[in-house]
Amino acid sequence: MALNITYEARLVQQEPAVGAGVQILLLALLGSVIGLGPAGWLTGLTFAIATWAVLSRALHRSQLRSFGPANRVTLGRATLVGGVTALVADSFESSPPVTLLVALTTVALLLDGVDGKVARRTGTSTALGARFDMEVDAFLILVLSVYVAMDLGPWVLLIGAMRYGFVAAARVAPWLNAPLPPSFARKTVAALQGICLLVAGSGLLPHTANLAVGALALGSLLWSFGRDVLWLWRTSRRVVEETPRSGTGDREVRELVTTR
């Protein structure tokens, strides 16, 4: 039994390495098609190595016995995001192939909801898979905001940086780490960010229209984050107020925070 577990663990650890290999193949393909420059190659390789290292460590800590089909879909999306990242990095040195960038981004966005459906249908939903999916989404939005900011201005960077700012703030204010209730509005706003940034970066609309699209994305994101932060703050205050009266211990307080 121990040998089987060890063998399964090794198989799981091979998945990130395969993903890194596919990422390098995609970079080689981009290099042959558009002549990817040094900045694009360096950024793409860095992304591939970082993804392999972080995912391998997460798999080791989670001790998953199977990588799962949903995580493979997410890993495929991460590979596309690596390609987009390389193209955006290359755009600082030369004019980017907008059509190719839009194509890779479109496929990555379309696959966004596929991994979740696969996980539910195959019964392979895991906390690691959900976190992996979220991090890939967040990084794609960050990269797209960098690309669009080159045309619309640095204010667009707020779209990509907001989630990371929230994570940083949670280190200072632990009450921001409490789980949020499911929200269709939050999911809609999150999906809207990628679509708006894709449209603004495609060059299909006039500059004024792109400004409006970017403003819509940022405004909706500010509303979504503001609503969630307010909910978390009210929940944390309610817990603090109820604790002295009920005499609950740390375990009970945590239950109050996570109860919806």
Rank of each mutant, 00 (worst) to 15 (best):
S183P: 13
P69L: 02
V143L: 02
T85G: 09
I5D: 15
L80W: 14
L152M: 13
L80D: 02
I34G: 01
L204K: 00
T126Y: 06
A185C: 01
T258F: 03
V81I: 12
V118P: 01
L232K: 08
V257Q: 10
P154V: 13
G83S: 10
T106G: 14
V84K: 08
L180V: 09
L29N: 04
A20I: 04
V199L: 14
Q193A: 03
F225A: 00
V118D: 04
C196R: 04
P181K: 04
A17V: 15
V213W: 09
R121D: 13
T6W: 12
L26Y: 08
G68P: 01
W223F: 15
G219K: 07
L197S: 06
V118H: 08
A149F: 09
H207P: 00
D90P: 02
G153E: 14
G113W: 04
G76T: 03
L205M: 15
E241Y: 10
L232V: 04
G165R: 06
S202T: 06
S125L: 05
V148D: 03
R186H: 05
V81A: 10
S91N: 03
M150A: 15
V240A: 15
S66R: 15
T188F: 12
S91K: 07
T79V: 15
T208Q: 14
A78Q: 02
A138L: 09
V18P: 00
I195H: 05
T122N: 11
G116F: 03
L30Y: 02
Q193K: 06
A138S: 11
M150C: 04
A138G: 04
V12D: 01
T258K: 14
S183G: 09
P181Y: 00
D250G: 14
A39K: 04
G226R: 00
V257S: 10
W175M: 11
D137E: 08
A178P: 01
V213S: 05
I141E: 09
A2G: 14
R61G: 00
R163T: 08
R57A: 15
S183I: 10
R77C: 10
R131Y: 01
V33K: 03
S91A: 12
I49N: 02
L100T: 07
N177Q: 14
T243A: 10
F92R: 03
A212H: 00
P181R: 02
N71H: 12
M134Q: 15
L222Q: 05
L55V: 14
P96T: 14
V199D: 08
G153M: 09
L256K: 15
V213H: 09
R254N: 08
L30I: 14
M150K: 10
L128K: 12
T85D: 08
L142P: 04
N177G: 00
S66Y: 07
T105C: 03
